[in-house]
Design a protein around this nucleic acid. Structure first.
Lengths: 217, 217
DNA sequence: GGATGTGAATGCATTCACAGCA
DNA sequence: TGCTGTGAATGCATTCACATCC
């Protein structure tokens, strides 16, 4: 099946399947059914099968899916069967936390360079990484073959920095700033707005319980 | 319209509308049309109007929406017209970054207490906040009227801690651990898996360009 | 004229239900 | 029997297009 025909939500769930499969692998499971995988994540078995079927035939009728086989197939589909070099712009609190976060490397992403506009921060080292000035960004992108970036700069700097990233040849941006970035169509942007996530919780918790609306009057 | 009938994606977009409106307000715009608001965020005008209409009639035909009016209406709908006390469990790198993140308070969320299981971390202070032992969690929840929590503990501790949060009376969890939490139906969970977001970028960037598939064979 | 709010029409995603295989 | 893969049916969400109002 052609990639354009895969529903967006299905691609998202692929990552959840992979994450859960790695957990199952870790505890020694060798095979798993769509029902079991779905239950662990809150999806139906049909959903799991349909999602996987968009990408090929990975299962074994009567048996289910082989855990290690499906893991490596999913990694290939998601593009994480090899290591990606990633750069980060913005060495504030959040940026520095991401610099030391181990979870990225475990998933195949290597933070290869860090940049900041603040002269006071430039040159400071964190583990293997030294904070570099923005002027070096474009050169680092081509030297280290970096294609994706994490953006942890203040709100009002985000668009300007994003423009620089695109100009330097970056094709994908993980944006932590609380603004919608304006980028060309061939640039992929994923956004993480932490306060916005809390706001969504707030909405759910502010709602009257389903099927039991409080009396009004 | 009843809340149960509102599409989930629409609730999500509500947060984006609010964020964009605050930007417009900041630069002195007083009114805005559904077309303009949509364009800033990559939605159609019809989408904007339909989303807002799920919650009431906020617009002025011929004029558009009054920015300040719509902001306060959306805040009320999302439940952020008042301050929420929030707690955090897990004072690792990410947790400490969140402790000093200013964006939460700006949106109406006050980090009121921080907990960690590691005795070495307990008592350490960051700004106004002191890291407290897990044993004090339940008492703090009721004393400070806390109803939502952020979870930044290691993967394998996440479920156990989530259970404690629920037992302590927490109703909403913002989960940063790379696992699917198992919680009762009346507990709301929002998940943020940073590596998973990069993985989604990886997928998009690994795909053949739309309408221009590379020759195979 | 210029904008909203909204039924109706369309398009997309999920679920059903079953043929087919181990 | 147990489970996958998949067309067909259903259910959601988005878009259209227009009546309505300032």
């Amino acid at each position: 099946m052609k990639a354009e025909e895969v529903p967006n939500p299905a691609v998202y769930r692929l990552s959840f399947y992979l994450r859960q499969l790695e957990l199952f692998d870790h505890i020694g499971r060798h095979t798993i059914s769509s029902k079991q995988l779905g239950e662990a994540l809150g999806y139906t078995d049909a959903q799991v099968r349909k999602d996987l079927a968009y990408f090929g035939q990975f299962g074994h009728p009567g048996i289910g899916y082989r855990v290690d086989e499906l893991i490596s197939r999913l990694k290939k589909i998601l593009g994480t069967d090899k290591i990606w070099n990633v750069l980060l712009v913005g060495a504030g609190n959040l940026g520095r936390a991401l610099m030391t976060y181990r979870g990225f490397l475990r998933k195949g992403f290597k933070l290869a360079a860090v940049f900041d506009a603040d002269p006071a921060k430039i040159g400071r080292e964190f583990g293997e990484l030294k904070i570099r000035p923005m002027e070096e960004l474009a050169a680092a992108v081509s030297q280290l073959h970096i294609r994706m970036a994490m953006l942890t700069v203040p709100q009002d700097a985000a668009q300007t920095v994003a423009d620089k990233l695109v100009a330097a040849g970056i094709r994908g941006i993980l944006n932590f700033a609380a603004v919608s970035l304006n980028t060309p169509d061939d640039i992929f942007v994923q956004s993480v707005d932490l306060a916005l996530q809390l706001e969504q919780l707030s909405f759910r918790m502010s709602m009257p319980p389903t099927g039991n609306p409080p009396a009004v009057g």
